[in-house]
Amino acid sequence: MKKLILAIFLACLVLSSAQGGQEYGDGLRAVSRGEWANAVQYFTAACYNYNDNEAGSCKELGVIYEYGKGGAGPQRVKKNDALSKQAYAQCCKKSGGLMRECCKKVGK
């Protein structure tokens, strides 16, 4: 019985981790195509909706909001200091302080 519960737990962990990684990859592909609004959706999902260590998605999200991306087109993401700091704080937290560039942005 314990082995069955452990197997189910590990399967759930792997599936949630794979989904978070997929969102990060989708976000990077969206960035490479200049689809900034889509990238924000993918990075937000990976950063906030998954329990795995998606610090990279949080960092990318912070950068997009810190600088604003996409010009004046429909994929434009406006600069937003509050959302940028929130993403950087999540990056610092999820990385356990190892992503120093994120932690520095929020004074940690």
Results as ranks from 00 to 15, higher is better:
K2T: 02
Y88E: 02
A46Q: 13
M1P: 15
I8N: 01
A82M: 02
C91E: 00
L83D: 11
C102F: 00
R33M: 13
G68R: 08
Y48T: 14
Q90L: 12
S57K: 05
V31A: 06
G25D: 12
C103A: 06
I64E: 05
E66I: 01
S16A: 07
K108Y: 13
K105F: 00
K85R: 04
Y42W: 05
G68N: 05
V14M: 15
S95W: 09
P74F: 01
N38P: 15
L98Y: 15
N53V: 06
L10M: 12
W36E: 02
G96P: 02
L6P: 00
K69Q: 07
I5F: 10
K93G: 06
Q19M: 10
Q22Y: 03
W36K: 03
A45P: 01
R29M: 15
L15S: 11
Q41C: 02
C91M: 09
D26N: 09
G62V: 08
I5G: 00
C58I: 11
I64T: 09
F9R: 08
C102N: 06
N38Q: 06
A72I: 14
Q75D: 07
A87E: 03
A55N: 10
A30R: 02
G68D: 04
Q19T: 04
L15R: 13
K94Q: 10
G56C: 07
S32G: 07
K78H: 02
A37V: 06
G96D: 14
L61G: 05
I5R: 00
A11Q: 09
G25W: 02
A37D: 11
L13I: 11
A82W: 01
Y48S: 09
G62L: 06
D26T: 08
S84C: 09
C103K: 07
W36N: 03
Q86A: 12
I8C: 14
Y48V: 06
G56P: 00
M1C: 08
A18V: 13
Q86P: 10
E101A: 14
A87H: 04
K3D: 15
S16Y: 12
E101C: 04
W36Q: 02
G25S: 07
C12P: 01
C47H: 09
R76H: 05
K78V: 13
Q41H: 09
K59W: 11
G107R: 09
A39K: 01
V77M: 03
M1R: 08
